[in-house]
Computed example of a mutant assay.
Amino acid sequence: MELNKLEILKIVRKQLAVDMNCSEEDFFKDGIVFCEAKSNEGRRMFDRQSPFLEVATMGNSTVVSVDRNILLKVKRLFEGKSRDDIFAAPFLFGHSLYYIPDGSKMKQSPCPDGFNFNIKEGKDIQELYETPGFENAIQYDINDPRPDVIAIYAMCNKRIVAMAGASEDSSKLWQIGVDVLPKYRNKGLATVLVSKLTTMIMERGIVPYYGVSSTNIASQCVAYRSGFSPAWMCTYKNTFDGMAPYESDVKINIIPKC
């Protein structure tokens, strides 16, 4: 089943609404939308910090999903702020950009000379766990709540040198990740692998998506070359659980003291 970009965006909005406990229409609104965070059935099974706070935008509204015990404090801080100001809040860190395939830009590139491709699916992917160095492509965990479903890898001289994998983040969205060993970069392997994997996923009627840190320019280039377009942005983590990289230097007191 082939999905066009509008259909894909609709599926994404529906999934984000489940993840953030808001409505699909909230992403079309102007300004800020606040919603109480909940672990809804069907959400993407990422680890959740406690307290939980995540901010996302698809280009219009800024949706803020936050645990009840800090909702009012966060709302008072964010009200009247611009989207840029909210994403720059000192108790948030890390921005993730997410891309979806754009059929008008997608194309299949030939395999570079000297490499051959192989595919593994389902439990067969566990055989690849014996080969380290591809942590962005596969989970290396048979019990991960977002299981690996497909992996396509490039070999050179009987060695795995590049790999793209997809995790089943939800029933409708599979996330693509890719790794290329340093010696074999800038040969087009990442683009070829991501493009081939994207086609395989879409043929199953599933939406592939590609996530990348806002600072990872090289990975963003792979997304563009593979025919992906940006669809949404969200924060990566908050500082409330004491795991921020500068926790010992900066303290943000939002959580009520016992």
Rank of each mutant, 00 (worst) to 15 (best):
E24V: 10
I138N: 00
A162C: 08
I160S: 04
F117W: 05
D30R: 09
G94A: 02
K158V: 06
F115I: 04
D85P: 00
Q15L: 08
T57R: 03
F115G: 01
K105R: 12
P51Q: 13
I11H: 03
D102P: 12
Q15E: 11
T215V: 13
V64C: 05
S50R: 15
I255Y: 11
V64K: 04
E121F: 02
R13T: 14
I152H: 00
F115V: 07
V63F: 03
P110F: 11
D249N: 15
G188S: 08
V55R: 02
A88I: 10
R44P: 04
I86T: 03
Y129H: 02
Q49E: 15
Y210M: 08
V63P: 06
G31H: 12
V178H: 01
I150L: 04
P51M: 10
S171P: 08
D249Q: 15
S61G: 04
D179I: 05
L92P: 00
A166Q: 00
E54K: 13
D144V: 03
G80W: 02
K158N: 15
I100N: 05
Q49Y: 09
N238P: 07
I119M: 13
S23E: 14
N60D: 12
L97R: 10
K81Y: 10
G80A: 05
A223W: 04
V180F: 01
V161C: 01
P112L: 05
N253F: 11
F78Y: 10
G122P: 07
R159M: 15
L72C: 07
A56S: 10
M45Y: 11
P256M: 11
L92F: 06
I201Y: 00
L197W: 00
G103F: 07
I86V: 08
G103R: 13
I152E: 06
Y209E: 06
Q126H: 11
P132Q: 06
I150G: 00
Y210G: 07
S248T: 15
D141C: 10
V18M: 11
P230M: 15
R83S: 14
E79T: 13
C221M: 15
D249F: 13
F115R: 03
I176Y: 01
V222F: 03
I11S: 05
F134S: 03
Y246H: 12
F34V: 10
H95W: 02
G122W: 02
N186V: 08
F117Y: 15
A244V: 05
E54L: 11
S65P: 07
E79Q: 08
V161G: 06
K158G: 13
S195Q: 13
S214H: 14
P90C: 02
R225V: 01
K123Q: 11
T198Y: 06
M1R: 09
S50G: 02
L128W: 00
K196A: 11
N136W: 01
P112F: 06
P145S: 14
R185A: 02
N40Y: 09
N60V: 02
T131E: 08
M155T: 09
K172M: 14
A190I: 04
I217W: 14
V194N: 04
Q15V: 07
V222Q: 04
F46A: 15
F52T: 11
Y210D: 04
D85I: 03
N186A: 14
T198K: 09
T131M: 06
E168N: 06
S229T: 15
S170H: 09
M202F: 06
D19H: 09
C156E: 10
C234Y: 08
A151C: 09
E7H: 08
L92K: 01
R48A: 14
Q108T: 10
Y140D: 02
T198M: 03
V212T: 15
A244F: 12
H95E: 04
Y98E: 12
